[in-house]
Amino acid sequence: MDPSWNREDLKVTCQDPCNLVRKGLGDSVADDLRFVIKQVVGEENFVDMWPNKSNNYCCCCCCGGGYLQSGFVEKRRAFGRIKFDQIQATGADIVVTPCHNCRSQIEDLCQVYGGGYRTTHLWSLIVKAMTRKSK
């Protein structure tokens, strides 16, 4: 992994998907997620959200709710307001959203509430820093 692609020192935070972390593999997988992101963007460019890991706030995508599909747009955005404020407080340019449904919701919150961040899949970010042994 070579973080030198991040020449502008873009600040990066991450969403801990509820299903993966709190309801799934716990803090250890959240630590793994942070390890990978730091390798990819440079350790000093990672900014953690608060609260985080198993104690994170659901962004209200879908972690068990199916909210994005349910059609309650106004309610979903009201639910996500707290998450939006938590993201903005990190000052991050990029939010890593390892779950597609988290990504859809966090992207929507950014547009609705006028946020200053972008979202990305984890794998799309990894490829940016991946150096190839075979080449």
């Binding site: 509820c18 104690n55 659901c58 209200c60 972690c63 068990g64 709710g65």
Partner: peptide
């Protein structure tokens, strides 16, 4: 019950471990 996402943060916060998410389900 459709606006709760069953994220289970309530269960984590609960000193008695009450499983409200399961009730919602």
């Amino acid at each position: 019950i459709w606006w709760c996402s069953m994220c289970q943060r309530c269960k984590r916060a609960c000193p008695m471990g009450v499983d409200i998410g399961a009730l919602v389900f």
